[in-house]
Amino acid sequence: MTEGLSFTASDGLRIAYWVDDFTDPWTAPPTLVLLHSAMGNSRRFYSWIPGLARHFRVVRMDLRGHGASEVPKPDVPLSMERFVRDVEELMDTVGARQAHLVGNSAGGYLAQRLAITRPERVLGLAVIGSTPGLSPSALEWLPLIEKEGLTPFLARTIAMRFDVERTDPGMIRWFLQQTGENDPAYIARFIGYMATQEWSAELPRIKAPTLVIYPGGETVGSANSYDTMGERIPDVTMVEYPHMPHNIADMMADRCVTDILAFLTARFGYPKAMP
């Protein structure tokens, strides 16, 4: 009921993904694609799977260069078009002409871009802590990461991401372990590239019903970007988690799942209540 698989993208890179399907065997559930954050991997959704995979065929991908997916060679330029194409090719691989897309932080960038460029493939869109592009202020992290190392930098600045007083220290240690397993040079390239991307002017092109869950105390970029999303996405539901820093998908996983299910039920009529 959980399968670890991979496919070869059209440029030859191997992409890892997992299928979690705990739906009733006699049904044909819709597909829901989960896209993780920068420096993360699909294991970061471990606590999301029980609530979602009972109602959807959940497909979670390790973004290229992250987790179990292959790291692009240093001389291969990064492009948003390639990242988004990976998502579309994943959908083709699992036989999903359309899917609901749920993206956390940088994963939400890819979900937004697919909803903008290929709206016919996106049924519903939910993004968590994900603005229309990474703030250029993130470029200031790069020399610090190079000087200190990725894990020490994240440990020193952990309050940017977690409410330390109310978060299990074990979760923070696990987060640091997970991020530390990535290739630091690639992560620096990824952050540097994403900090050059911005598409707020294109938000009106998103046609799918959209849920934006955002931290009221956003610490990665400007919280004003969420106001822009509320103003420009045509069919949008905005949900604030007051006072929280960036990593609400980790700290408040159960609430995120509850809000996503409530949104999909209200807009699409499923998942149906279980007997």
Rank of each mutant, 00 (worst) to 15 (best):
V239I: 15
M251V: 15
R121A: 12
R205M: 03
V71H: 03
R97K: 14
E181L: 12
Y270R: 11
T237S: 12
E140D: 12
E148M: 13
E231I: 10
P169E: 09
D254M: 11
E218M: 01
S10M: 07
M274Y: 10
F263Y: 14
L123F: 00
T196H: 12
G67L: 10
R118L: 12
Y46V: 09
S225E: 13
Q112F: 15
M251D: 15
E181T: 11
V127L: 04
D11M: 00
Y270I: 15
F153T: 04
E88P: 05
G129K: 08
A223V: 02
S137W: 02
L142N: 00
E3D: 12
P74N: 08
L123A: 02
I260W: 09
D86P: 12
P152G: 02
R54Y: 00
S69W: 05
R232Q: 08
V257D: 01
P271A: 07
I248K: 04
P29A: 08
P143H: 06
V220E: 07
A185E: 14
G133T: 05
E3F: 08
R156S: 02
I49A: 00
R166K: 15
D21P: 01
H243G: 09
K147E: 13
S130G: 05
P215H: 10
T117L: 08
D259K: 13
M1L: 06
M1G: 14
G51S: 06
W141F: 08
A99I: 14
R232N: 02
D168H: 11
M194F: 06
H66Q: 07
